[in-house]
Amino acid sequence: MILGRVIGKVVATQKDQKLEGAIFRLVQLITHHGKKEGSPVVAVDFVQCGDSDLVYLVKGREASFPWIPEEAPIDLAIVGIVDKMEKLSS
């Protein structure tokens, strides 16, 4: 899984019918140091997160698994909201 910060949402009324009901969030991927990783990306939200939440995401084929038994074209999914993070002091 990877870390990201929710920065907004994306609304798409016209979409593949398998994505019916999906909530799209705009996420800036970050490292645990808080450094940005690339440009913001769009992920399907499975946990009803909100703006500025720190979340973890699943990438690839597994991203569509929370939607089982339906198979959906999802390659990035938000699967958890981070409450607390403890880091190695260095």
Partner: peptide, 25 residues
């Protein structure tokens, strides 16, 4: 990699419930 931290999460997909999450660098 090196374990550099822990994550705590209460709102998560059901298969993550009860699992320990580590931050790996």
């Amino acid at each position: 990699g090196k374990v550099v931290g822990h994550l705590w999460s209460t709102i998560e997909e059901k298969e993550f419930v009860g699992k320990k999450l580590l931050i790996i660098e």
